[in-house]
Design a protein around this nucleic acid. Structure first.
Lengths: 328, 328
DNA sequence: GTATTCAAGGTAAACGATTACCTTGCCCGC
DNA sequence: GCGGGCAAGGTAATCGTTTACCTTGAATAC
């Protein structure tokens, strides 16, 4: 095992209280000589205070939990990195928890993280309703990112971009390019204020009918993109597809190419997220950028400022940006 | 704060020792009545033992650390997921640490994780030599994945695939396709038993000269791929490029297309890793698959078996597999 | 000369679990 | 009727820190 504070104290012939005070800067009543002696012994032995003991004592672990669906989805590592970068800079660690979007795992993540005494939690695209009220009562500093949840009065912070408006804009873009019949492929989601809502409103405003036969909703995955175009194009004809995210778009593009159609001359396709790989798709994907890294940073910053300085939580809307490439 | 064991004990009118014994199954001397009573009170209050207190007492935190260069590189989330999945299944948590391949950050990750009393560590593409001897003396269960390190006698486990052989095979593939002049773009690396070594040997065996003018080595990134082809093609002509990983290949492909060349008719390109997005590149990338998810699982399994049951560490070589797509 | 103050540092009780060892009462054998 | 054994559970030390409060000696005030 590593060296403990007690051993350092013995070496320096002082008490652990003295060592502790020096380490934590509560050292108004420590002489310069003692301070230097202790510090040099700490240095020599490269002593690092045991954070689990400290955490137990002070009930703060300088650790935050990050609950996300799946780190393997390329949208999340960017957020994760944003979170980790500011957390590290502010002296916090972050522990990850994948839920696969399953309610049970979400629950167990939270209780697991709680038992680790994390000081706060960041949820990305999770924290489901069934769990919400129960969760609130735990009273643990929380910010949700990219999740539409009613935070009013709950003390929960929120970082988001208006993806509904983003989808609205990008389907309008398709309309502007002359598309007459635009399909929608995305994940199933309960709320109407989401991406699907943006699609509907854009159609409506353009005087185009909403046709369930050309919307397909399942998961935010490549497979959904593939299955989506396969089932829609089996019976329908469309000249544009808006995809709920870039993963879906990647799958959709592959599937339409497989059917001998070409992009964008036969079908125009757009996505959402602007994941790193979107520009390497063929053709490079037109999409709307969500600033994932910045969202992660903003979330971590808000959370940690709340933990450390009791700064209030708030809602912050980040801007999206149309990324025009070659699929429209 | 959550409820503590003491409070449970009070509610059940027993001692904390009794509660603890029941929770941990050391309950031969507890009556069925008491057990049920305690269990039901635990249930009602959804009590979860505080793992940091427990960790402090038993000096085991059921947590492992995962040190990696950058979660944003799409090769790593797969490994991470593999690690997390088996860790979770075996009752362990994993905390991540990005190093950006900087020696300082690697050091501080380790001492940070150590202060968190992690029970073991997994390094991916890190654990550098300068640090190695010092590290060994810490005597913490460790496995390295995808890192060429001499583990003989060190008690360090190792999961790897023979990427040297993989690169050998895939450059041979290029030779077989008729390439006469094959460039190499990869990361700088110190050891000769790495990907570069495979490239050299393949050239040699094919009777082709090794020409420094057509090798470019910097980082495992898209940018390196771009800069690599820009600098090589500025003065040289080649008909094949082997890239150290798929990220580099993606950059390289974009750059050669930008120069008006086409793949594979003008230049054949191959990568290594088979990251998720390789099949969506245009044209779909020929590469060699490293089973990242399986590597993560194998690493976690070995590490945790060592921690829990003192099973010895070992070296395990996983197989790679040529993925023939359309860039050759 | 006594009371007060202050610098410098020590004492010991927490934090929330685990666990080696003790206690108590009951039963049983002889 | 006494010792042994066992079932059932309690006591208290411990893990490595932090921190409220105490102690000590010297300086200063009056």
């Amino acid at each position: 095992m590593s060296i403990t504070m007690k051993q350092i104290a013995d070496l320096a012939q002082v008490s652990t209280a003295t060592v502790s005070k020096i380490i934590n800067g509560r050292d108004e009543h420590i002489s310069q000589a003692t301070r230097e002696k202790v510090l040099s012994i700490i240095e020599e032995n490269s002593f690092q205070p045991n954070t689990v003991a400290k955490g137990l004592r002070v009930k703060k672990t300088n650790t935050i939990g990050f609950v996300l669906p799946d780190i393997t989805n390329p949208f999340f590592p960017e957020i994760a990195r944003g979170i980790e970068d500011v957390a590290t800079a502010m002296g916090f660690a972050v522990v990850f928890c994948n839920t696969d979007n399953e309610a049970k795992r979400e629950q167990s993540c939270v209780s697991f993280l709680q038992s680790k005494m994390v000081d706060g939690l960041i949820f990305t695209r999770s924290l489901r309703k069934s769990f919400f009220d129960n969760y609130l009562s735990m009273n643990i500093p929380t910010v949700v990112v990219d999740r539409d949840v009613d935070t009013a009065g709950s003390g929960i912070g929120k970082i988001y971009v208006d993806t509904r408006a983003a989808v609205f804009d990008i389907t309008k873009l398709l309309v502007g390019k002359g598309c007459k019949r635009i399909a929608f492929i995305s994940a199933m989601s309960t709320s109407q204020t989401d991406r699907y809502g943006g699609y509907c409103r854009a159609l409506e405003e353009s005087g185009m009918p909403l046709d369930e036969a050309i919307v397909y909703r399942e998961f935010y995955s490549v497979e959904t993109g593939i299955k989506g175009v396969e089932t829609i194009l089996a019976t329908q004809q469309v000249d544009g597809i808006v995809c709920g995210n870039d993963l879906i778009a990647a799958g959709a593009m592959q599937a339409v190419r497989q059917m001998g159609l070409s992009i964008p001359s036969d079908i125009r396709i757009v996505g959402v997220d602007n994941i790193y790989f979107s520009k390497f798709l063929y053709p490079p994907l037109t999409t709307v950028e969500q600033p994932a890294y910045e969202m992660g940073m903003a979330a971590a910053r808000m959370l940690i400022n709340n933990i450390l300085y009791k700064e209030p939580m708030f809602e912050q809307k980040l801007d999206y940006r149309l990324i025009l490439r070659e699929t429209v």
